[in-house]
Simulated scan of single mutants.
Amino acid sequence: MRYAEGPTVEATVHVAAPPAQVWPLVRDIQFVADTSEELQEAHWLPAPEGPAEGEAPAVGHRFRGRNSHPQGGEWETVSTVVECDEERRFSWAVMDTENPTATWLFTLTPVEGGTELRQWVRMGPGPSNLNKVIEKMPDKEERIVAHRCREWQQSIERTLAGIKERAES
């Protein structure tokens, strides 16, 4: 799999709680950061770019994330909410909404006994720090992309487990 192909990663978990109980955790970007090894913190930008005091996030709202990776160092990103369908879908594009470095998505589906919670991410199509690594070792692109996908898979599984635990407690 090559970066330009827009590889995706996803996982799903059953949460023994209704979507109304899961939704606040999904859209709580700091809680999502708390479950991640890479995303160290996330904060909504002040209005008008982010939600006003006490306001729920909506399409167009932006947040800043601070990231850390053993090989990639530290960096910040700004993400924009591109979907916010209450208790159903919450998605953001990283950096440029027209050409994001990644797009992240949560979907909540009501099922018997709770919620099927899915998290999905697509790499690219916009350039990211990963492109710099690939440019240095183009013959290893597929291995580099596969490694990054495995890291994202672990991150998604950790985030879903954290949301499940909090929603069910």
Rank of each mutant, 00 (worst) to 15 (best):
P100I: 12
K136D: 10
A93G: 11
E10G: 09
E87V: 12
T101M: 15
I156T: 05
E116R: 07
L117Q: 00
V22R: 13
I29V: 15
C84N: 09
E53L: 00
K132L: 09
G65I: 02
C84I: 05
V145K: 06
A33I: 07
E112V: 04
T80D: 09
P7N: 05
M123G: 02
K140E: 12
E74S: 14
A167T: 03
A167L: 00
E74R: 13
W104H: 08
E142Q: 15
H14F: 06
A56W: 06
A11Q: 02
N99Q: 12
A146V: 09
W152F: 08
E38Q: 12
S79R: 01
E83P: 06
G124D: 01
H14P: 00
E157A: 08
A16V: 01
F90P: 07
R122S: 10
E135L: 04
P48H: 02
P110V: 01
T103G: 03
A4F: 04
R166A: 08
H69Y: 07
A56C: 01
Q30R: 12
D28G: 08
A58R: 14
T80Q: 10
N131S: 07
T77D: 15
G162C: 13
E168P: 12
S68T: 13
A58P: 04
V133A: 03
E5P: 05
R27V: 11
V78K: 10
D96T: 11
E41S: 15
E74C: 02
I163V: 10
R62M: 03
A16W: 01
W152N: 15
T109D: 15
E116D: 11
Q153Y: 06
T103C: 14
L130Q: 03
R64M: 01
H14C: 00
V59M: 03
R88W: 12
A16F: 06
P7R: 08
T107H: 04
W75R: 01
T109S: 09
R158S: 15
K164V: 06
T12M: 01
